[in-house]
Every structure is written in C-alpha cells, then in structure tokens.
Amino acid sequence: MSIIQVANLKKSFGSLDVLKNVSFEVDKSEVIAVIGPSGSGKSTMLRSLVNLEQINGGSIRIQDQYLVKDGGYASQQQIKAITSGMGMVFQHFNLFPHLTVQGNLELAPRTVQKLTAGEVRRRSQELLGKVGLADKSDAYPARLSGGQKQRVAIARALMLNPAILLFDEPTSALDPELVGEVLRVMKQLAEEQMTMIVVTHEMGFAREVADRVLFMDNGEVVEAGTPEQIFDNPQQERTRTFLNRVVRV
C-alpha cells in the first residue's frame, strides 16, 4: 500500500511551468532517489509535499489523507496534521543558529508536542548518538562542519518521529570529503525501513541505496525504475543524455 500518492501535479511560476504532470507513488519503507538536471522541478515537487510550495493542480495523498485533491487544498488544520507526519532535511541545513545542537533538536517537541523536558532530553541524546554527535549537544551550529550540521538537521527531523523523511539535495552544499558521513546516516535510516524521498546528485547513493529512481527533466517524470533499469538500461533518450553528462557510476 502506497504511503504517498502524487497524481497529475501541476505548478507554475507565472508563465513558467515548473511541474507539468507529475505522478508517482511511494510505498512504505521505500527509498526513492529523484535525479535530474537543475531546474527540472525536483525540489519544487519535494517541497510541495510538505506544503512549502503551493501547487496549481493535481492531487497529493499522504498516509491516506488528501493534502490536495484535484488542486483543492485541505483545511489549514488538516494540512498541519498531514504534514506533521513528514520530516524534511534541507540543502542548506537551516539549523537555528541561536540555539545549541540540543536546542535545535528539542525546540519543536517542546513547543509543538508539549512533551516533558526529560522525555525530550532522552530522545535527543539517543538521536545525537545515532548520528554520531553525542559530544556536540552543547555546541552552537556555527562551531560545526557542514557534515555535522547536516547530521544534526537529520536528527532534528527525526525528533518528531516522522513516517516519511524528505531530503532536498542534502549533500550538495558539502565539501566532498564530508558527503560520506551524511550518506552513511541516510543509509542507516534506509536500512531501518524509513520511507525516504531523496533529491540528489549523488548517483552512487542513488544506485546503492534507492529502491527506485525517478528521473525528472523539464517538469516531468521522464523515467522511473529500479537503479539497475535507470542506470544500466535507460529507455529514454533524455535519461541517457543526462546520465552521460554526469559522472558515470
């Protein structure tokens, strides 16, 4: 049973059609890698799932609830409830610079879920341990490397126990030598059966970790399939052209 169903998604900025007719489904515990050239609409598609972008047409159904049905949005309250099941990790981390690592993790559970300090502290320590940053809980983001920041951002997203994690180019802002530590955490989450959609330029990660790969170009899903199908035997000319331009994996 699919946990996310996207049908005929349309989005335009003025006269520019960013998403033309995007449809796909994601099963529970599936890891989807979304690849494609810049400006193909990958990020817009991902952001529309958590209501960071408003779409102009189509439907988004998440955990059996319609966020948007045929272009009509659910009520504010429903939107909040639906999107609360998803966590998001951004390209530029978007950590809160005025809070320590621990403060970043604990802000939402404390203010939104009103959990007690003790519960929240246990969970934040556990998650920081999981991403290998137990010793950084009192550090401010300014003192962390890019890779560490992104691992904190992943831990922060996990604090709310999301059913689905979305990653918007999580390693694109990192120095090459820091990419591995972030991908390792993501791989571990995939092994723990987390449902993930990852917009990425890391073809190695897409091939190794993803269950399915979506290739997007020009606001459309051009081709979708297993990593083997997409990388070794692409059916579409546009997919071949793109893969020839990026480093072969």
């Binding site: 960071l52 978007n94 802000l107 203010t111 709310l160």
Partner: peptide, 24 residues
C-alpha cells in the same frame, strides 16, 4: 530557510516568530 524549517517542524507562525525569528 529559517521560516521553512520552523514550518516543517510544525511551529505555528506565532511560535516561529517568537522562538526562531525574534532572537535572531
């Protein structure tokens, strides 16, 4: 991105303003 992170974490507009935006 600060507003977006706050929104995705479920903070209301007011909570985001008070806890995230104002201190910065």
């Amino acid at each position: 991105g600060q507003h977006e992170a706050a929104q995705v974490l479920g903070l209301s507009r007011w909570q985001a303003t008070v806890k995230v935006i104002m201190p910065q």
